[in-house]
Each structure stands twice: as structure tokens, then as C-alpha cells.
Design a binder for these strands. Structure first.
Lengths: 345, 345
DNA sequence: TTGTAAGCGTTATCAC
DNA sequence: GTGATAACGCTTACAA
């Protein structure tokens, strides 16, 4: 058989070329060499490499009822947080012979739903989900058909699901304590709207509780901004600036997107960081080292989160049954130039 | 049949539930309503939604010899350039009922090769490739089996392949002319090693030719740096700085990774931009607006590149035969604060 | 150690 | 209009 036809090389072609049955070839593919004579094995080996044969995943999956496909729906592929996780997940995934189907929901539940349908049609063996908060019914469907699900970062109410992410309470609390210890008299928390997203909610809760526990006056200086509407961000920033006039003050942002938008506005207004205002943010984007000679950040072990999520789902696929578990990693504070110590007046 | 078994709902189950044959169900799925009576159609409709039936892509693919899968191998998923392209490609892809398999080669030919094998096994209907420069043989295999290939950005020697990307000659030339017109007496070009990557090569070529054409003295101020080795970058930066001492000078970077590393070093050395040195770079990362009050950049229509690549491959999949074509987009210069006009002395 | 044959969930070709 | 039936490429009893 000619190379040019290699797209159509099937197990049967290989068998014919090697002068054996397709069963033997199948045994070879499955690595069951003990069921094969050396001679047969060599003949098959030769035929396969000569014909550039590659088993057809679809046929294999159809028969074995396994797709070797793992779906991952992420909320924002533009976010460095996301891509770091993807790399961790992908590395473990391919090491184990599985393939990753990456889907980007853009934080849009309808797009997310479309991907659910698609992945379901592909009969994925497992799903890693950075949820938008909607499509609860789809999750239930997956659960019913015993497809393992791992939640990334954001939890889902009512459902008992494995979860891998950050310890948001601890991380936020640590950052807030740090800022308060640096003697900032007013500290604001800027976040995207919490809506159904647990992470955002937890961080806000922790922010408020931590300040409350220290009797710090800022426990209500919480702002939810729509990052796609710069005017909205500006108005809320303005509100905080006016409210905290004359005090030493800091802003803590719930992610790097909010951080970026705020910096843009501060520069427009010619406000100086950290002189006029201290800044600290969740995530640790590459640019945080070069802006203001280094922005203080709360860094997550993103790659490791991806690794852990994938390892967990592979265990579930392998049949491990145990109650749903949660892995929460500790954050790392990177203290840089935007949060100096303030001498008490 | 019970919902709980939905993972196993097949076309046959639907047929039984609706009291028709699976042929009819298949006709329904294929949208061939004219071959169905209204009554039958309604019965099928009902059964499908009640049972939450979803056609099995693997079975469908096996039968029809189409996977509805398009592979895309990108060189660096951390790069915003890449994610923007992915979004463009993905949007068109899902609009047309195809699914994207995203693979990240990390600029590593061996990883790339692994993905080639995997995608080939999945019988992808087309491949979009941001090549590492290796694995020429795999491309030939794909060509032989008539699987359409579109190259992103980087060309491959010897092979006649559709290509979508930037007009690198034009873009670089435009940027160089701009910098020269701003009266910089020395202009350096910092790039990652060109090796087999056409884009890097073209940009360097264009840089040199443009300066030569203006009899500018810097046509040999070209540096290839290994971005993973900061010492290497630092040494080359130092070389240029010493060489150009006392002159007005600028650096043009071939991508945003190099740009970031250089800025890091400049800040360490307390060098001021643009006072001591002007900066301009390819790509337009989000942070370019907030560093140095705005870095001048050469922006590519990344989303559009992704869209165009996907549209092109879909046309090829649909059977369009025509000679390989190249789409080269024009770049957009964003003139910001890091490249001020220099008064001639 | 090897091979025959059935079947995975679809679609397509025939008959009726 | 409708429904048997035969593939698609593979794995796996079951035989030999």
C-alpha cells in the first residue's frame, strides 16, 4: 500500500500487509506482547511503520466506550491565570495518554452551555470546569452519567463536587492584615461583581471580616466594578478617593484585570503610586514586576492547580470512589514597591 | 428510559421510545425533514428532548469519515498574541459546527510532534499550525492524506501551504522609518534567535534593509537573545549601550517577551525611558498602555488573523481547490510615550 | 499463539 | 414515508 493513501490505512490493511489477522494487530496495539510470537510482533511492527499507520481514535472510542478526551471549560483564556493552569493540566494529561479539549466560555453562560453540549457529544471522559455560575442542569446530567467533574477555583452550590483552587479566605485575610499592619487608614476592595462566582464572594467576605476583626474603619469600602465600562470603574474609584481624602490609603484588587484598569485611571489622573495611594492585587501577572518598579501581589500556584485538577480527574476516571474533596492551596504574598510602611502621624 | 442512564442513550433508544426506526431518527438528526411525516417528526422530537439524547460524535465520525475536529498547534499559549488568535479562530469554528483542539507546543518541536501524532489519530479535518520549524515530515503526511493545513504567521520552506499572518517586511520597515525619522542616531533590534522561524528572520531582514536604504549607521545593531537567560540579554543590552554611548538611541524589539525582559533590566540599571533610551516593540500587550505612560508598539490584527485562518481552512475543507495563498495583514503603529522626537543637535 | 465473528452508534443504500 | 441491513475501524469473547 502506498504512503499517499495513508489517511485510509486501517488495522485491516496492516494485518494484510503483515500477513496476520487484525486481532493480532489489535493485540500489538494494546501492548499485549505476551500473546504474540516474536515473529508476528516484528512483522506487525514493520508493517505499521512502513505504512505510517495510526489507530483511529474514533473507532477505538466507539468500541471501548472511552474517548480519552478530557474537556476543560475556562472562563477567560486571555487571563494569564488561565493559561498557566492550562499548561499544568495539559502536561499531566498528555503524560497519561489523554487529550485535552480546551474551551473558552468568556465568562458567558450561553457560550459555556454550547461547550457543554459539544463535550457531551464527544463523550468526554471527564470535565474540568471554571464555571460561569450557570448551566447547573448540565452538571447534573454529567453527574448522572457518571462523568467525573472537577471544579476549578469557583464552587457550585448544592452539588457535591471535587474542587481545586486557592484558599481565598486565608489569602485575602493575609493580604488585608499585611495592609493594615502597614498602617493604611483606609483600604478599599475592588472586585468584579460577585454574582454567582464563589471566589469573588469569598474574597469580599474575607476582606470585610478581617477588617471587622481588627476594628478597622474600612470594612465597608467594597466596590464592585464592571471592567468593561471604564466610566463605572472611574466613578467608584473617585468615590473612594474622595471619601478617604487626607488619609493614608490602599486599594486591594480581586484580580489583575481590575488592577490594570485602575492603574490606567490613576495614570490618567496623574496620581502617584504608592505616594497618593498604595496598590496590591490578586494574581501575579508578568507585568507586575515592571510597573511602579514592582506591584505587590498575591500569587497563586497556578501551574500546580492545573496539575492537581488533572491528577484528581484521572484518579476519578480510573474509578477511585471517595467523597468529593477540596484542595485549597495557600497563596504567596509578593511584597514589592507599591505598599510601603506608613509612619503613624 | 430513565434520565439516569442518559450517557447510554443511543439513536436506537430514541427510535424505540418514539416507536419508529433508527433510520427515521437519523433522518431527523440530519435535518432531512422533508423525508419525514409531521407526526413522526414530532414523536422523535419529543423522545430526544425527554431522553436528553445527544448524537455520539465518535460514531458519527467513524461512519462519515469526518471528525468535525480542527487542530491548532500554537507555539506559546502564554502569549497574548496567541490567545487573541485562538478566540478569533474559535468563534468562527463553533459557528460552523466544528470543534477546535488546541495544543500548545511551547516552541518545542518534540512536543509539537506529539500533538501531530495525536491529532492525526483523531482524524482532524484540518490543521492550523504556528510551527516550531521542525516536523516537516508530519506536514508532508498530512498533505498526502489531503488534510488541509494553514500556517499561522510562520512559513515553512519547500512546502506550498496557505499562510495567514502579518506583513512583516512592511510592518518592520514602517517602524524603522518612524524611529529614524524621530532622529535616533542608533537603533538596535532585539529578537529571539531566528533559527528556523521565518517571522523572526523577515523582521530582522527588513530592519537591516530599511536602515541600509537610509544609510543609517545601525544596520548591524542586531541582537539575538535567549529570553530564558537574563544574563545573556543583559550582556547584549550592555554591549549596545556602551557602543551607542552619547548618541540618541532606541531599541526595537521583535516581540513582547523580549520587550518585557529588557524593561526589567533597564529598571534594574536605573535607566530612564525614554530619556536614556527609546523603546518600541512588536505586539501590543495590555500592559503596554501602563508602563512608561504608554509604550509605542506595532500592533497586529490578532483576532482577525485567527478569523481569517479559520475561514480559510473551512473553505479548504469544503473542497475549495486553488493554489496555496498567503494573507498578509498590515500592522498598526501605536505611537505613545517611549519614542519622542529628538531635536537634532 | 492465532483467527473468526460480533458489536460499539452512526449513516446510507436499498427495498417496500 | 418508512424501515431493514450493511458498513465505518476497532476491541474482545470465543474457538481452534
Amino acid at each position: 500500500m502506498n504512503k499517499r493513501e495513508s489517511s485510509k490505512v486501517t488495522i485491516y490493511d496492516v494485518a494484510r500487509e503483515a500477513g496476520v489477522s487484525k486481532t493480532s494487530v489489535s493485540r500489538y496495539l494494546g501492548g499485549r506482547y505476551d500473546e504474540l510470537s516474536d515473529k508476528t510482533r516484528k512483522k506487525i511492527e514493520l508493517a505499521i511503520s512502513q505504512m505510517e499507520y495510526r489507530p483511529n481514535t474514533m473507532a477505538r472510542g466507539l468500541k471501548s466506550n472511552k474517548s480519552y478526551l478530557i474537556g476543560i471549560i475556562v472562563a477567560d483564556i486571555n487571563n494569564p491565570y488561565t493559561t498557566a493552569i492550562l499548561r499544568g493540566a495539559e502536561d499531566i494529561c498528555s503524560q497519561n495518554g489523554y487529550n485535552l479539549m480546551i474551551c473558552n466560555s468568556d465568562n458567558n453562560p450561553e457560550k459555556e452551555r454550547g461547550y457543554f453540549e459539544m463535550l457531551l457529544s464527544h463523550r468526554i471522559d471527564g470535565l474540568i470546569l471554571h464555571t460561569t455560575g450557570g448551566n447547573h442542569d448540565m452538571l447534573i446530567q454529567l453527574q448522572e452519567q457518571k462523568t467525573p467533574i472537577i471544579l476549578l477555583d469557583r464552587k457550585v452550590p448544592d452539588l457535591e463536587l471535587d474542587t481545586v483552587g486557592l484558599d481565598n479566605f486565608q489569602a485575602t485575610s493575609q493580604a488585608v492584615h499585611f495592609l493594615a499592619d502597614q498602617n493604611y487608614e483606609r483600604i478599599a476592595f475592588f472586585s468584579e461583581p460577585a454574582s454567582k462566582i464563589s471566589t469573588r464572594y469569598e474574597r469580599r467576605q474575607s476582606f470585610q471580616q478581617t477588617l471587622l476583626s481588627r476594628s478597622h474603619p474600612s470594612s465597608n469600602d467594597v466596590y464592585e466594578v464592571n471592567v468593561d465600562d471604564l466610566q463605572d470603574v472611574e466613578a467608584k474609584l473617585q468615590h473612594f478617593l474622595e471619601k478617604s481624602e487626607g488619609k493614608s490609603r490602599a486599594i486591594l484588587t480581586a484580580n489583575s484585570v481590575v488592577l490594570l484598569k485602575l492603574i490606567l485611571l490613576l495614570q490618567e489622573q496623574k496620581l502617584s503610586v504608592p505616594k497618593d495611594l498604595a496598590m496590591m492585587g490578586f494574581d501575579n501577572p508578568e507585568w507586575s514586576t515592571i510597573v511602579y518598579s514592582g506591584i505587590s501581589t498575591i500569587e497563586q500556584p497556578t501551574y500546580q492547580i492545573g496539575v492537581a485538577a488533572m491528577e484528581m480527574i484521572l484518579r476519578r476516571i480510573d474509578g477511585q470512589v471517595s467523597p468529593a474533596q477540596t484542595i485549597a492551596y495557600q497563596a504567596k504574598l509578593n511584597i514589592r514597591e507599591t505598599t510601603p510602611f506608613i509612619q503613624k502621624s
